[in-house]
Every structure is written in structure tokens, then in C-alpha cells.
Nucleic acid binder design. Sequence first.
DNA 1: GCCAACGTTGGC
DNA 2: GCCAACGTTGGC
Length: 154
Amino acid sequence: MQYGLMKSEPAVFSIDSLARAPRKRSHWDGVRNYQVRNMIRDEMKKGDLAFFYHSSCEVPGIVGIARIVKEGYPDPTAFDPTHDHHDPKSDPANPTWYMVDVELVEKFATPVTLDMLKANADKLSDLLILRRGNRLSITPVTAAQWQKVTKLAR
DNA sequence: GCCAACGTTGGC
DNA sequence: GCCAACGTTGGC
């Protein structure tokens, strides 16, 4: 995939949670959408970079950059009946849900807010996060979009 | 809390 | 396979 964007609700898992994690690494678990599962399982490669996006919060926007450090493997929380994201239909012998591991690369000094992204919609046409009704928690980002957003962060 | 948009489920 | 009902997401 090379470049992507990963959404998270900061109340659940924020960029600061990732910064505090051992070696600044964490599982990206809980994905329960087939399109996103396919991306995680088939397309995200070690070394790929992703914008870390905070959603459903006071100031939604891109707050930093993470790197994929482990490619797709079965998400064990799907098999855990006590877990929020438990899925009784996922068979450990043939897992439905996958996750990747990510590592913090950079927390932006100033986030690139959703407002800023919208204000630059002319340059960021087709950035999927700006598209109406887009609900995928992980979306691909083109190299051109990556450069432009990175510039906005500086 | 509201609402638009979309995914999933289940009856037929 | 269709489609209505329902659940979830996410900005506002």
C-alpha cells in the first residue's frame, strides 16, 4: 500500500497512547470491516507509512505518522468472549479478522486538522477521508497526497 | 443529541 | 438475490 491513513478515536486509542507504548509499538486490533480487513491482510506491507487520524473528538485531524512493523496476522481479540470486539463466527482455524502492528514515527507539533484538509481540498482532491460518507477506518493515500499533507504539517 | 451515509442482517 | 430494518460511524 505504501501510504495510508488510519483512523482512531483518541478516547479509545490516541497517538499519545502509541507514544507511551513499549518501544512505541502497538497492535492495531478491532478491525471488523471486510474492506479494511482485506487491506490489512493483503496490501499493507512492513515499512508502509500511515497518517494517524483522530476522529470523533474535539478537533478531528491528522496528528502524526506511524509505520507498519508487522504485516497482517490474526486478531486474537476476535476469539476472546470477554472482549468488546469478540466475534463468535471467527474460527481460530480460519480467522476472519486480522491486525497489523504499528510503530510511532512522528507526532506532529501541530496537527493537520480536518478544517485544514478541507481548506486545501483543491490540492487534496480525492483524499478519501474528505469524501462524504466515508467510514473506512483505514484508507489508502497516494504519494502526491502524502507529500501535500506532510507539507501542511511543517 | 442529531442526522446522513453506509454496512450488515435476516425474512422472504 | 432482494430489500427493509437495524446498527455504526463520524462530523456537527
